[in-house]
């Protein structure tokens, strides 16, 4: 379980001429949860968008499952096993919950073959989605939409899930549910790279973490180490 599944070397990128990310290095190993923490505008979402191919890197290298995937198209990266749950969730609002899941299973022949099995699994993970199965995704509550976004991503049978701000705008009880589900997903052998503003919660969930400030990684370590880091304590844990 200790082989790196994702290796990022000297990654730089941004939007057009605007550089947001500077020489990023990070690693995610198979089956672990790693979090990226930082303030608003530090470059967390941009990092995820670079990893999943939504933005083209300016330089650097992204290696996933031993293959260099730098500048691959997003769809190809998803089919190769790295699925991004974006901040805006990007659900298919005029399709039912079930249809959203079926589109996720369209990803690869393997995912399609295991469609029913995976669907049972995600319905188990988020029982509320079973009740909502025939409802349009656009009519779901924020929490249900977040659950559906994660569930849809799981339908692609990823080996690494990139999750952007799953707690955004949700009631604490719902966030508990989502984080519990993420833990369960990891126990099923799926690695997770988590971007979160709720630093305490993410460090509790993750094995390791990186701290990003103004597009630079400024600290890294196990969650326990980061919890004790004076800078992290002062800036993010408010103690």
């Amino acid at each position: 379980m200790n082989t790196p599944i994702l290796e990022v070397n000297n990654l730089s990128g941004g939007y057009g001429a605007l550089q947001v990310i500077w020489n990023l290095n990070l690693t995610v190993r198979a089956g672990e949860i790693v979090c990226l923490i930082g303030a608003n505008g530090a470059g967390k979402t941009t990092t995820l968008r670079l990893l999943s191919g939504l933005e083209k890197p300016m330089k650097g290298e992204i290696k996933f499952q031993g293959v260099t995937i730098t500048s691959w198209l997003p769809a190809r990266i998803a089919r190769f096993g790295m699925t991004h749950v974006p901040e805006g969730r990007n659900l298919f609002g005029l399709m039912t919950v079930r249809e959203n899941l079926e589109v996720g299973a369209n990803c690869s022949p393997e995912a399609w073959q295991k469609k029913e099995e995976t669907m049972d699994y995600v319905y188990n993970l988020f029982p509320i989605l079973t009740e909502r199965a025939n409802q349009l995704a656009g009519t779901l509550s924020g929490g249900e939409q977040q659950m559906l976004a994660i569930a849809r991503a799981l339908m692609t049978r990823p080996s690494l899930l990139l999750v952007d701000e799953p707690s955004m705008g949700l009631a604490p009880a719902v966030v508990d549910n989502v984080f519990k589900a993420l833990r369960e997903v990891r126990e099923n052998g799926v690695a997770i790279f988590l971007v979160e503003q709720d630093v305490r919660r993410s460090l509790k969930l993750a094995e390791r973490g990186y701290v990003i400030e103004n597009g630079h990684i400024v600290a890294q370590g196990t969650s326990a180490e980061l919890m004790e880091n004076e800078e992290v304590k002062r800036a993010y844990l408010a103690v």
Partner: peptide, 23 residues
């Protein structure tokens, strides 16, 4: 399946790409 993919790309091109649909 094809029809669902067409609707998915129509409604949410980025979301479709992120679950592996080749637009």
């Amino acid at each position: 399946r094809v029809g669902r993919s067409i609707r998915a790309v129509s409604q949410e091109p980025e979301g479709a790409a992120l679950v592996g649909i080749d637009s």
